[in-house]
Design a protein around this nucleic acid. Structure first.
Lengths: 97, 97
DNA sequence: ATTTTTAACTTTGAAACACAAAGTCCTTTT
DNA sequence: AAAAGGACTTTGTGTTTCAAAGTTAAAAAT
């Protein structure tokens, strides 16, 4: 089975798959946009985000925009690399044998 | 997010992804081959298989080959269809936005 | 004729995960 | 002063994952 062992458990959840695929093409995405784009609840997004952060697959930036706090996310180099591997695994799996 | 909502929870596990992708290109695959190809334990394969069977995504055939019992699996039409939708979702997700 | 092996499970149990709802905290708008 | 917004954390419940061990029935080996 080509690719099967390249699959990363961290990306098996559709939510984390969504987060990473957004962060692969967008450099910084804020909390609210992420939540709305994926249609998640606050708690749900927060927990998936924190698990990706713990793995150092994404980084979190907190700042004030105007007077409001804003949290944004970006994929780290490691995150992009691991996600690419996962995608490659998927593609091989689906094309292969 | 293109594709995100086309993702099927049933295929989020790498094991079930593996099973389905094998059954998409091979008509009937037996228990032992499936287990070895994916490197799974007995119990693990059995449980994933039974969850896919419950959803009617795969069908199970039991017969004797020579003197030995043999269980084989194939994807149903529904299974192939749903899996295709999932794959399409994945592709859109990964290419899109 | 026993013992061992093979095939295919089922059961068990512990850990991880998913997710909504509710609560928190701090700030800003009204 | 009250309400609302942003970003969480906590809680609780239900589901999933997976290996290990146990089960059954037949076949092969001794």
């Amino acid at each position: 089975m080509q690719g099967f062992n390249q699959l990363n458990k961290a990306f098996e959840s559709r939510v984390r798959l969504g987060i990473m695929s957004i962060l692969l093409v967008n450099d910084w995405v804020n909390y609210t946009d992420m939540k709305d784009t994926l249609g998640l609840t606050d708690g749900n997004l927060a927990s998936h985000v924190s698990s990706l952060e713990k793995l150092e697959y994404i980084q979190v930036r907190k700042e004030f925009v105007g007077k409001k706090p804003q949290t944004s996310y970006a994929a780290t180099q490691l995150g992009k690399l691991e996600f690419q591997k996962h995608i490659d695994g998927l593609e091989r799996l689906l094309k292969g044998s």
